[in-house]
Amino acid sequence: MENGFIQTDDLKKYYRMNTVGVKALDGITIDIPRGAFAVIMGPSGSGKSTLLNLIGGLDWPTSGSIFVDGEEIEALDETELAAYRRNKVGFVFQSFNLISSMSAEENVGFPLRFAGVQAAQRKQRAREKLEEVGLADRMTHKPTELSGGEQQRVAIARALINNPVLILADEPTGNLDTTSGLSVMHTLADLQKSGKTIVVATHDPRMLSFATQTIYLLDGKQVSEETYHQTIEQLSWEGTN
């Protein structure tokens, strides 16, 4: 595995809430190689989503730099960033984020509209992707007519439609039952095997069994596995008292 596919350097994201500053990310320096299955672990509020959003170009850091596949993300302008998201990144969200008025097929093909692909081809490619995620018989279903697990697989198909090099998944199993969650994890693992780089933010420990690399976050800071577990144990011990 080649190093430096995703590299951040002293990445910071601060929010100012009235007088109080929130350090959502406080100096994160990571390196994820191409083809990795990276898992970002951390309790709620530790900055997992923030980190993922910065890598995906959905938000701007307060300071620091992000390189993905040789591109300096935080230096791109809005249009370049849109092209980056369109061509290189596929997003999978906890709440699926499908468009409720569109069928599965239309949802999956939607990114292709912005890529200038014509309707007939959009339909064909969307069908192929839906078949890949095992939803061949759900093409014309609206999101409300699908189970959570099915919706998430539609979302994964959509993330794959532009053939991105990078899949960013923010708690993809968070809204799913154990079985569907596991099936989504397997789908992501298969994608990694096919050569894509996967970054997943989660607090689901089962995800660790697929990981090639784990990043532990506490209060916006990266910590070692030992520190992480000690702190978590301490927190839960304090919590039960």
Binding site: G56, L58, E78, T79, A82, A83, R85, R86, N87, F91, N97, I99, F110, P111, F114, A115, R158, N162
Partner: peptide, 16 residues
């Protein structure tokens, strides 16, 4: 608003 966010995440430009 959320739909706009989705469109942006899947690669829509501001002009789109």
């Amino acid at each position: 608003t959320r739909e706009i966010g989705i469109m942006k995440a899947i690669g829509a430009t501001n002009n789109n």
